[in-house]
Every structure is written in C-alpha cells, then in structure tokens.
Amino acid sequence: MRTKIWVAAICLLLVFYLVVLVQRSVLLLTDANPVAKALGAALIVLPPIGAWAMLRELFFGVRMEKLASILEKEGGLPVDDLPRTPGGRIVREAADAEFLKYQREAEAAPEDWRSWFRLSCAYDAAGDRKRARSSMRDAIRLYRSAPAVG
C-alpha cells in the first residue's frame, strides 16, 4: 500500500509540473518576442509526452499487478529465497543460476504468459531491468491475446 501512495504522490507532482509547464508555455506564446514564442511552442510539446509516459507506466504497473495476482492465486509466483548480501542485494551467482531455470521454462513454453512473467522476475533478480521489463511486456501481451476462459 505504501508503494501505491508514493506512486500517487509522484503522479500528482508530475501532473502539477505538467500543468505549470503548459501555463508557462502559453505565457511564452503570448509574448511579443519571437524567441519567446518559439520557446513556448517548443515547450508546449512536452506536457503531452510526459502525460503519455506517465499513463503508459501506470497501465504497465496495473497490468503487471493483475498478472502477479493471478499467479499468486495459482501458486505460480517465484519464491524469493535467493541469498542476499549484508546490504540486501541478491547474490549475483545465485540469481544467475536461478535465471537459467526460468529461461528454460520460457523457451519450453513460449506462448505461456506465466513463464514470461517468471522470466521477468528472474531478469530483475539478476539485475537486468531492461530485459525484465521486456519480458514482462511479453507476458502482458501474451495474457491479453489469450482467449478468455470461462
């Protein structure tokens, strides 16, 4: 719940920033100076991009949470029992060894969103955030394209 509160607070701050940016852009556009008008025109593009990025990340998080909830109910979430350093980081060698298990699972069942979800968790544990997000996007895509059950 704390995470959701922080996400909401950050989103509110971003929305406030975007509103202020729009206001400043409009002020610059109404200025008589052509340089100010050009700057205002350039700045007016940023708020829609920022809003799109924020919404994209929020939808990603909601969809990821939904898949995690389904896997939790099925008992299919990976167990977080990897050894950690005194600082709390996962021991890289242990994460790499565990990763191979989930990589094989995803290769054996490439159309199963569950295997891609678990592979994403393994990438994250191994510290590869870029591939973790890519695998999670694959899991979400596969889940959304699967025929509805029931």
Rank of each mutant, 00 (worst) to 15 (best):
R56S: 11
F59I: 12
L55T: 09
I44T: 05
R114Y: 05
L77C: 10
L58P: 01
K130G: 01
A126K: 03
F99V: 02
M64L: 09
D112T: 05
D128Q: 05
V22A: 10
R63A: 15
V26Y: 05
E65N: 14
P110D: 12
W52A: 05
F117N: 06
R56M: 09
A109W: 01
D124L: 09
A53Y: 06
A42M: 13
V26T: 01
N33K: 09
R89I: 02
V7C: 07
R92C: 06
E72G: 03
P47Y: 11
V91A: 00
L46V: 13
S25W: 02
A122S: 08
A97Q: 14
W6P: 01
D31A: 13
A139I: 08
A125H: 11
Y17E: 11
K130H: 01
D80T: 03
P86Q: 02
L28T: 01
K4V: 13
Q103N: 12
R133H: 08
G61Y: 06
E93H: 03
L58C: 09
E105S: 07
R114M: 08
G76M: 14
G87H: 02
A8L: 15
L39C: 09
A9V: 15
E93P: 00
A42H: 04
Y102V: 00
D80I: 01
K66Q: 09
L18P: 00
S69V: 00
A42S: 10
L67I: 08
